[in-house]
Design a binder for these strands. Structure first.
Lengths: 345, 345
DNA sequence: TCAGATCATGAGAGCGCTCTCACAGCGCAA
DNA sequence: TTGCGCTGTGAGAGCGCTCTCATGATCTGA
């Protein structure tokens, strides 16, 4: 033991060595206790725990990571055109859920954004250096190639939403867009609406596709005919919803209900309906999707479909941590959605 | 050189050792090149750079952190009741800005939430173990004690907003709430409004205080009397804004303008005004604060004050990184706000 | 009673890097 | 020639931890 060890600088952090010394055991035993390993006597365990507590010991993660090759941190990567994502409470809910679940497992969440091709490349490069144990990938336009690239460099990845190609060998957690759209449409059918139309999301996006599927499925279940003039494609924005509503009114002047595949599009649609003097819900019933704050503020308040965003983030994290731990986990998880009845339908 | 070194497993990451070997220099020289140190010959530099590139070398941050005692990561801590913060695009903007600036400096952002006292304690404990180099602290209710605790354990911290006690020895970046409120009120004065009222934020929060100060200052500049019946305290929510508006109408039936210290409160106020048959802006002009998405959606569209949220995050990060680097940085930074004129005033 | 299994423990190697220190090589003044 | 400073370089220590392996203590069954 050198002089340096016996006279530590007052600001020096306690090390495992010093905890072990105080507890009167070896570094190895102290390490075993602190990692919760078995095969340690009760006496030793207690001594180490007390010493660690008294010295306010915290493990040096860098040192641990160096030997275990695990960082105990995962990345939350937003691979998306920022503007689109950052207005979206959906995204925030997922982040919150992921953070909560990671915190429960004492895992750090590293937040990253890669909105351009160059940034994506840089991130993949960074991450392939094993600086995080895995990646939670949030991307609205279900672009599988980032996830695939990450898997290619052996970084476990879990996708938000579903892979665009349903057969892609990727892990994902999605909310049940099909079922959500189906119950939304079924709600309109139950009201006795006759001409039910839909404003779809972009059909090159998985949620856009799935919500249209649900709509079609509900019509089909009720033996109602589907025709293309019943739907108009939007882009998940207010403006797009308004444009689609205008188109629908032209194509189906008798329409008495509309299912918008997002709340913002529903808000745009409601505005157009008001301009055309159609009362909601008396003349035209409206159902949205997402349950964003604007849905409650709308006049009348919007009936919509809520997804468990928080739980989405939590589940993604659970799946990822499972993969990292080498457990067998379900490749595709689908979480239930729920109808929130308000005044618009 | 052992057999292990000459026959590496194919999946093994390249180490500095192997890069140096390929470049025909020592590990020390390779390290110098990769850290951008001077005192390296051009030949050596080029050889190392090429070798690193060919082997797709990435530095092992754990190993580096172990010796430098720097992690090259900072925490983004949300110390706030989650519900309040997570509906707020303000928060998201700050996060985005911070991420962008951190990424530019090759610093990782660790995202953390501490909404309860226990979680806060846990975070302080975690962070006092030097697992991040500093903390960006986002807390709406300007509660200084978390920042103070972090500074007490020698973790550089930068606060979002201003310290609640203006003389607290803390670093902070704020937007100019006083000036924002002043120009909002000045706008109403310019319109010729006679009885200008305000719905304040919670007066135990710095932004609440500052926006009220700006309001008073504008009145005082225009030699208009201020009386307490001109203001009602809200809580930054729609419901609170509505309640405050009701109170104001009772106290000042002749009011012809209202400055709400947040857009959501403005929305609540507009609703109450509509219920009372007051037309906006003809009977009562309304100005908000924040420029959230709902401000554009409101009918009529809300005139409001925009803060540079993105820049707020960027500046906080810049200040923090400056502190970490040991530079002398300004203790308190205030960013300008801007009036966005729409239809409501 | 003793061989063999089981358990708690400590010694020590080594993870991949940075950084100090010593030294060789060179130019320049005396 | 000698002495000095300067520059580029490599050897080697060591950051704080985990994990393997050897060892001694304890327990089991015959």
């Amino acid at each position: 033991m050198s002089v340096r060890d016996t006279v530590p600088r007052p600001t020096a952090r306690p090390t495992l060595e010093s905890v072990a010394a105080r507890a009167g055991v070896s570094r190895a035993t102290a390490s075993r206790v602190l990692r919760g390993s078995s095969n340690v006597s009760a006496a030793a365990r207690e001594a180490v725990l007390r010493a660690a507590d008294e010295m306010a010991y915290t493990v040096n993660r860098a040192a641990r990571a160096l030997v275990t090759r695990r960082t105990d941190s995962i990345a939350f990567l937003v691979a998306e055109n920022e503007e689109r994502m950052f207005g979206d409470p959906y995204f925030l809910g997922v982040l919150r859920g992921a953070q909560a679940e990671a915190a429960d497992a004492a895992i750090q969440l590293v937040f990253a954004i890669a909105s351009t091709e160059a940034e994506t490349r840089q991130f993949v490069q960074f991450v392939s250096g094993r600086h995080v144990d895995g990646v939670l990938l949030v991307s609205l336009h279900g672009d599988d190639h980032v996830a695939q690239e990450l898997e290619d460099v052996d970084v476990p990845t879990v996708l938000n939403g579903r892979p665009f190609r349903p057969d892609a060998p990727l892990f994902s957690v999605d909310s049940d867009n099909v079922e959500g759209a189906r119950i939304a449409t079924a709600c309109l059918l139950e009201r006795g609406n006759r001409t039910i139309t839909t404003i779809t999301g972009p059909l090159d996006m998985a949620p856009g596709q799935d919500r249209l599927s649900g709509f079609q499925q509900a019509l089909s279940d009720a033996r109602r005919p589907f025709r293309t003039s019943l739907c108009a494609e939007g882009d998940f924005t207010i403006r797009g919803g308004a444009a689609a509503m205008t188109a629908l009114l032209a194509a189906e002047p008798d329409l008495d209900a509309v299912f918008a595949a997002s709340d913002l599009m529903a808000v745009g649609a409601m505005r157009v309906l008001a301009e055309h003097g159609r009362r909601i819900p008396d003349d035209v019933a409206v159902v949205g999707f997402d349950d964003v704050r604007e849905a409650q503020l709308a006049a009348p308040a919007l009936t919509t479909v809520r997804q468990p965003v928080d739980e989405l983030g939590r589940t993604m994290t659970r799946v990822l941590l499972g993969r990292i731990a080498g457990e067998v986990v379900q490749q595709r998880t689908v979480l239930p959605t729920e109808l929130v009845r308000r005044a618009s339908a």
